[in-house]
Amino acid sequence: MSILVNRNTRVLVQGITGNEGLFHSEQMIQYGTQVAAGVTPGKGGEWVLGGKIPVFDSVKLAMEATGVNTSVIFVPARFAADAMFEATDAGIPLIVCITEGVPVQDMMQVRNYLDQKKVRLVGPNCPGLLTPGESKVGIIPGNIASAGNIGVVSRSGTLTYEVLYALALAGMGASTCVGIGGDPINGTNFIDVLELFEHDPQTEKIVLIGEIGGTDEDRAAEYIAANLTKPVVAFIAGQTAPPGKRMGHAGAIIEGSAGTAADKIKALESAGVKIAKHPEEIPLLLK
């Protein structure tokens, strides 16, 4: 078992004919992911990647023809919100948006629309999902992680790779790794993933990787204290970062003084979470 993606996941790539879309589609296929179709408006009818993958003009057409159940988005930031709306309206139940730099007001509209539908969004600005040995949906380098019983959830990209690599070097593996992305407004959050891991029989322990800014880690801490039976190890990046650029008075009114690494660490520690001082310490704390 795993969460969100497995060997049966059938993937649609939105933006498949772009540089990144094409490169990572190939990487996903090599890893064993079932990439079934791509979408690039205006290029419907073409075939890419050695003539193996059909391209459609719209998500709806791709879905009808190939029965995909997950979409991964590589389109440029200015088109990303539209791509997410399109996938949602076509009825794709799981959307993974890799695109970085999506305007925050676009994301507020997307998120509020998605909340009215039964759709799960992971990202944007995230590395995607990896269930080692089964499927990867996104850009996490597959070769650095091995299969195992540790659920990994992270707000970061390359820092997640660092952690997967450290786990693999220590002989440990991941059940599923979920990169939820570092943007202020995103889809799936820590609590959603913690809940999934708690109910996943393969996952025995959980690694949570957070960073400064926002209050998601604090809320995750409350959730852990109240609901989780599985042990959690966390790492928070940005312990030495200079105080963030303040968003005028309004930011202070909304978020108060929360958002520092020290606050998050304190909240997680009081929920019984072990805190690693650096990523390579995580495997030691999992033992």
């Binding site: 820092l159 990046a237 940005g238 650096h278």
Partner: peptide
């Protein structure tokens, strides 16, 4: 490369 890893390296 990457903001999270950059902060981690500083840490």
């Amino acid at each position: 490369n990457g903001a999270g890893l950059a902060m981690t390296s500083m840490d």
